[in-house]
Design a protein around this nucleic acid. Structure first.
Lengths: 142, 142
DNA sequence: TATTGTTATACTCTATAACTATA
DNA sequence: TATAGTTATAGAGTATAACAATA
């Protein structure tokens, strides 16, 4: 596939990042299923820190989706027993989403499993890894 | 967010790649909408090369989804006027998905736009880009 | 018998619009 | 008036199972 535009290397790097993206997109749902969750549910669970309930509206912003979706998403997570709606004490309109004990446990396992996962990265040298981190930080934060 | 397991740097790199993944996941649908397509439809369109119709079953494998989904996906792409089902001459069971003239044009614009997109990558030095490509190749192919 | 594509069905994710209860 | 969350509705992506046509 030949593409014109930009520098050759930047373009190639971008294509590779896209291939990475679609590879993840294919593998993630199967991976998440280990935990009885969809990939977006995993993402939501990882965003909610233990003992720190997050208002639904903030969760919607963090997930970059409409607030109306969060209702159903949280419904499903709640019926799965991993989160719990807790009313705000300061604003009676607000409901926050907090982890249950089971949710905090599951989230821990999930993060642990993610951390153990990067087998392909372990083939990189120490110097390569350091540089990759530097580059990705520029990419993700910028 | 503190995670135990693996080496610190590999873990950090993996977290960054995941952040990249979810950032893309948020931005891609909006980006694809420019073309009147969903992100998966963009992905499919980019997989089908001009003058090279691809059997539905192969497309399903390439998209890593069940064959039954491809029926609807191709229906929508067909009603959008960018692809066309063409019967195989050698096996009367198979239908291949080929680009229409409009589809080939759209695909070209799409790839062009992707190529022009990597602004964050252009901030990298030449050496950084080269190394990033090397590392990503190991990651994606492995 | 096995494979290709389709249909039927069901669930999740997504958006928009209208509604309620609060602020 | 504006905001937080819900509901109703619609469309797209996903899977499984059953089916017809073909190999």
């Amino acid at each position: 596939m030949v593409i014109k535009g930009s520098s050759g290397q930047a373009c190639r790097a971008w294509q590779l990042l896209m291939r990475f993206f679609f590879a993840q997109r294919e593998h993630l749902p199967g991976w998440a299923e280990q935990f009885g969750l969809s990939s977006i549910q995993c993402h939501a669970l990882h965003l909610i820190e233990p003992d720190r309930p997050m208002p639904m509206s903030r969760l919607a912003r963090a997930l970059a989706c409409d607030a109306s979706n969060v209702t159903g998403l949280v419904d499903r997570l709640e019926s799965r027993g991993v989160v719990q709606r807790v009313p705000s004490t300061t604003d009676r309109r607000v409901k926050a989403v907090g982890l249950t004990a089971a949710g905090a446990k599951l989230r821990g396992e999930l993060l642990q499993r993610v951390a153990m996962r990067p087998h392909p990265l372990s083939r990189l040298s120490r110097a390569e890894r350091r540089l990759l981190v530097e580059i990705l930080e520029k990419l993700v934060d910028g």
